[in-house]
Simulated assay, not measured.
Amino acid sequence: MSHSVLVTGGNRGIGLSIARALADGGDKVAVTYRSGEPPAELTERGCLAVKCDITDPEQVEQAYKEVEAAHGPVQVLVANAGIARDQLLLRMSEEDFAAVLDTNLTGTFRVVKRAARGMLRARSGRIVLISSVVGLLGSAGQSNYAASKAALVGFARSVARELGSRGITCNVVAPGFVETDMTRELTENRRTEIVSQVPLGRYAQPEEVAATVRFLVSEDAAYITGAVIPVDGGLGMGH
């Protein structure tokens, strides 16, 4: 059965892999992107790409209207859009702290709240929030990012309790270090240092995160809600 799916930040990296996996599974997938142009492969797969900055409530509302007009009410939401502005605590500006929280946490609140409307009417839905191992472990120079990603856990569990009686699940996926354009820009020394901390001794592939999301939005995961599922090669175990 095909579902109406929305993946925020679905134009690259982990989000693109998630969109690809769900589209290949037969779902009607829409993605939001903030800048640039979405890759051609999305349109080739029949995905709808909608320009949307999730820090702007009006753009969020407009994006949902476009998706609903094309695919019907959103039945599966994957909140993946996020930014990082790394800096040591004493050098971090209030603007950089606030910007990361506004995108990663408040932006997620906006898209979840809007999706919940249709899900409540349908008495079913799947919500998956993409957090990070950094939100569980902490990371020097990323206090803003870690705070935003940790906050998603409390948010998701509150949503799970609030909406569970209506057949709506809300879960968190916490990826570790993933092979993306962003991590490929790291120096070889830094990459080696990171891998040395991972029990499995390698980076994740974006497809491995996407496979976990695909499971969580499937019927097989109908009795899983409020869970935090790490896809981190063991890096964050115990947290």
Rank of each mutant, 00 (worst) to 15 (best):
H3P: 00
V5D: 10
V5W: 08
T8C: 07
G9E: 08
N11L: 07
G13F: 13
L16T: 10
R20E: 14
A21Q: 05
A21W: 01
K28Q: 07
V31Y: 01
P39E: 13
P39K: 15
L42N: 12
L42T: 10
T43Y: 11
T43R: 14
T43E: 15
G46M: 15
V50T: 07
E58H: 05
Q59I: 06
V60W: 03
V60Y: 02
E61Q: 08
A63R: 01
E66G: 06
E66N: 11
G72P: 00
V74G: 00
Q75D: 06
V76I: 15
V78P: 01
A81S: 15
I83T: 13
L88A: 11
L89E: 12
R91T: 14
F97C: 01
F97R: 08
A98K: 13
A99C: 08
A99N: 05
A99L: 06
A99M: 01
L101N: 08
T103M: 09
T103L: 03
T108R: 04
T108E: 06
R110Y: 06
V111P: 11
V111T: 13
V112N: 11
R114W: 08
R117F: 12
R117K: 14
G118C: 15
R123N: 10
R126D: 08
V128M: 03
L129E: 13
L129V: 09
V133S: 10
G138S: 06
S139G: 08
A140C: 09
Q142G: 10
Q142R: 12
N144I: 01
S148E: 02
L152R: 06
R157F: 03
S158F: 04
S158M: 13
A160M: 14
E162S: 12
G164W: 03
R166S: 14
T169N: 06
V172Q: 11
A174Y: 00
P175G: 15
F177W: 13
E179W: 05
T180V: 10
R184L: 15
R184S: 09
E185K: 12
N189M: 14
R190H: 11
Q197Y: 00
Q197H: 11
R202L: 05
Q205F: 04
Q205T: 02
A210W: 01
A210N: 03
L216N: 02
L216F: 06
Y223K: 11
V228I: 08
G234C: 13
L235V: 15
M237L: 14
G238E: 15
H239F: 15
